[in-house]
């Protein structure tokens, strides 16, 4: 591996995204994403899994600054896109001043427009993510317009057609409206739109969840082909573990806005450490009934706590069979367990 390749494409540190929720006269922060850090290498796929409402989508949107982050630092290709200025020591603890308030550095907010060309997004719902009043050509051409990526009308049309071809649609489709397509075709249009600016990083927000299984496979393979051809890095958000395992180089597991475990895909699937990951993995349906009969399903008790009233210490402790007093006192840090396998748990 050369020196150049080791640099992460995207570096997210201590990212926090709180949404104010008003309860009567009070405003309580809903901690959708609370202190998440990870890196993505060029050309790599990071899978992000977790149950519904755990903040996966928020992470994706916050990285693209579609939401203004509450705190944290986002760097892309060595350029800091956002930095709220909080300082952290090497162990990841916030540096406080004498009065116990967080010490603040310089706040950085970069104009995102040039980076919209490099970071793109594919959306979950192929129905609501395409404007019903626009033809496919207009939809795919919109990013070209915004970033002035063509000289004349002819070049624009050629670019649109070649993009459609890349995602497996043909020129005849360009003049049609989104409602005339099937779900899989619509998702391809969404992908063509994301590819139009030639990005080096794409957030796939549950990009295949709304599709049925046969189409999922087609679209997933297309994502992989595009990665091979164009060297795009993905943040692949999904709740289907098998899909994530199939496409990801590394997998991160989220629970209630916190990162629980992150490791290479095979490592995580074969040697999970965190009790939450264990129960997630045990929930994967096994196609062979004979094996399934002997497998042990870890069923979690209770419900996910409300992100408005987060449990103290470890967010998972209310449903964890290993939970001890320490878990209630202090939040476990994400520690390295060797080979880049990181896990946030006191007991395992």
């Amino acid at each position: 591996m050369s020196e150049n390749e080791k640099k992460p494409l995207l570096k997210v540190e201590h990212l926090k995204q709180y949404f104010p929720v008003s309860q009567g006269f009070h405003k309580i922060p809903l901690k959708a994403v609370d202190d998440i850090s990870f890196e993505i290498m060029p050309g790599e796929t990071l899978g992000l899994v977790g149950e519904s409402g755990c903040g996966k989508t928020t992470v994706g949107r916050t990285i693209l600054r579609l939401y203004e982050p509450t705190a944290g630092r986002i760097a892309f290709e060595d350029q800091v896109l956002f930095d709220s200025g909080e300082l952290y020591d090497e162990e990841g603890n916030q540096i406080l001043d004498e009065k116990g308030r967080p010490k603040k550095g310089r706040r950085v907010e970069v104009n995102m427009l040039p980076y919209r060309k490099k970071m793109q997004m594919v959306f979950q719902d192929p129905y609501s993510s395409l404007d019903p009043r626009m033809t496919v050509e207009e939809i795919v051409g919109e990013p070209l317009d915004t970033h002035h990526l063509y000289k004349n009308k002819k070049e624009r049309r050629e670019k649109v057609l070649s993009l459609l071809e890349t995602v497996g649609l043909n020129a005849e489709h360009a003049m049609r409206y989104a409602h005339e397509f099937s779900g899989g075709q619509r998702q391809r249009i969404g992908i063509a739109r994301a590819l139009a600016v030639n990005p080096s990083f794409i957030v796939c927000d549950e990009a295949v969840s709304a599709l049925d299984v046969s189409i999922q496979a087609q679209v997933l393979n297309m994502f992989e082909d595009l990665q091979d051809k164009l060297g795009i890095a993905y943040l692949f958000i999904a709740h289907d573990l098998l899909v994530v395992q199939h496409i990801s180089d590394r997998i991160a597991v989220m629970y209630l806005g916190h990162m629980m475990e992150i490791a290479d895909a095979d490592e995580l699937m074969n040697h999970p450490i965190h009790p939450y990951t264990l129960s997630l993995l045990s929930a994967i349906p096994i196609p062979d009934p004979e094996t399934a009969r002997h497998s042990h399903r870890i069923i979690l008790e209770g419900d996910v706590p409300s992100p408005l009233h987060m449990p103290t210490g470890c967010p998972f402790r209310t449903r964890c069979k290993y939970a001890t007093e320490k878990c209630a006192m202090e939040r476990p840090p994400l520690t390295d367990r060797g080979n880049g396998h990181k896990c946030a748990c006191w007991n395992r």
């Binding site: 579609l66 919209r116 060309k117 997004m121 959306f123 990013p143």
Partner: peptide
């Protein structure tokens, strides 16, 4: 949201 992500 997609249009915003594009930078429109």
């Amino acid at each position: 949201l997609a249009a915003k992500a594009i930078g429109t």
